[in-house]
């Protein structure tokens, strides 16, 4: 390594050039083929037909994969063009801005977006709307909410409140000793669920019966670590808020062998989460309905392309407690129902 001599045979340089040409050709054949396969050479149509772009937070979370698949399926049903883009990690604002810009350039009539940071992508959304594109927020509201034409989402405060009400009811008359595992600090979903939970639980922020709280960014491994640390000093815990199901699973992993058995609540309604409820690892989870968000979003896009009518305001796609130990005063469905309506794989 590090050597370089002035002598180069003409033959060897030629083969390097050949390799270079091959490499470029290879890359182009790859991209070229995919272009062909996707559009079949068809050109952009602008005859009242919707062209929908979906921008999710990431490609990795099964929740967004479901959102994407449901939207694609619905778009196929309507026979309209659809493409899906995403940020590459939670908080990738620049990636989402780039995705929006490229979709506008592509001639999208509607952009459905699960915005990363509520304020991060507002400027790009503004520009898209100025060019006549309808922008709908899916799953996560922007801040302020009217930065987009409309929002189709779970009311996360309400979902958090349902979790809180269930966990409190399950405690009965026992004095609560609460641990909270939050999501990504600063994200609106995290804040809303947290606030909603405390409201439903009947407790104020800063209450001394909250033994501890930590953020785990919705990640199972981080949640396990956070829970292990919290459990070191909070042996009297009897109730747990988790921001989503991977977080609950992380908490459960931390509980193993500790001899503790607190009431664990969660939110999401993924199929794995529902099966965790069935097996008793999670006591109750609040199911949300991403497929419904995607379908409503695509339907709205198709309608908008046809008639120019725009969706406005907040559309709550609802949420429901899933548990096999129903509590009085907390409406819920059992895990059998949950398994039929959950999202993702078990």
């Amino acid at each position: 390594m590090g050597q370089c001599g002035p002598a180069r045979g003409a033959g060897s340089t030629r083969s390097v050039v050949r390799a270079l040409a091959l490499g470029i050709a290879g890359a182009l054949i790859f991209t070229g083929c995919t272009v062909e396969r996707y559009w079949g050479g068809e050109k952009v149509a602008d005859n009242g037909k919707a062209k929908i772009g979906l921008v999710t937070k990431t490609d990795t979370n099964p929740y967004f994969v479901l959102l994407r698949n449901a939207a694609r399926q619905q778009a196929r049903k309507h026979g309209v063009e659809f493409s899906a883009l995403a940020g590459r990690f939670d908080g990738d604002n620049a990636g989402q801005v780039t995705a929006i810009e490229n979709l506008v350039q592509q001639g999208a009539t509607t952009i459905l977006i699960t915005p990363n940071s509520s304020t991060g992508v507002l400027a790009a959304i503004d520009q898209a709307r100025a060019k006549g594109v309808m922008v709908l927020a899916l799953d996560t509201a922007t801040e302020p909410e009217n930065a987009v034409d409309g929002t189709i989402a779970t009311d996360n405060t309400e979902a958090g409140e349902k979790q809180g009400r269930y966990v409190r009811a399950a405690l009965g008359n026992t004095e609560p000793q609460l641990l909270m595992i939050d999501g990504t600090p600063g994200s609106s979903v995290d804040t809303e669920r947290h606030t909603g939970f405390l409201r439903g639980f009947g407790m104020k922020e800063g209450d001394r019966r909250i033994l501890g709280a930590d953020s785990a960014n919705g990640d199972q491994n981080m949640a396990q670590e956070a829970a292990e640390n919290l459990l070191q000093r909070a042996r009297s815990v009897n109730s747990v808020y988790t921001m989503n199901e991977p977080t609950a699973r992380g908490f459960n992993a931390a509980l193993q062998g500790s001899g503790l058995d607190p009431i664990v609540g969660s939110i999401d309604g993924g199929c794995q989460g529902v099966s965790n409820v069935r097996s008793g690892q999670i006591d109750a989870t609040v199911m949300q309905f991403p497929a419904k968000m995607a379908q409503l979003g695509v339907d709205a896009a198709v309608e908008h392309a046809k008639s120019g009518k725009k969706v406005s305001g907040f559309h709550n796609t609802g949420s429901i407690v899933i548990t096999d130990k129903p509590m009085p005063g907390v409406p819920s469905k059992n895990t059998e129902w949950g398994e039929k309506n959950c999202w993702g794989d078990t």
Binding site: F30, T34, V35, W39, E81, S83
Partner: peptide, 19 residues
């Protein structure tokens, strides 16, 4: 360029990353 061009060709971003 890849990101922009492939998006306009209607190709999802995971394929863009592959490219």
């Amino acid at each position: 360029t890849l990101r922009s061009g492939l998006t306009q060709a209607g190709i999802d971003d995971l394929y863009q990353d592959v490219a």
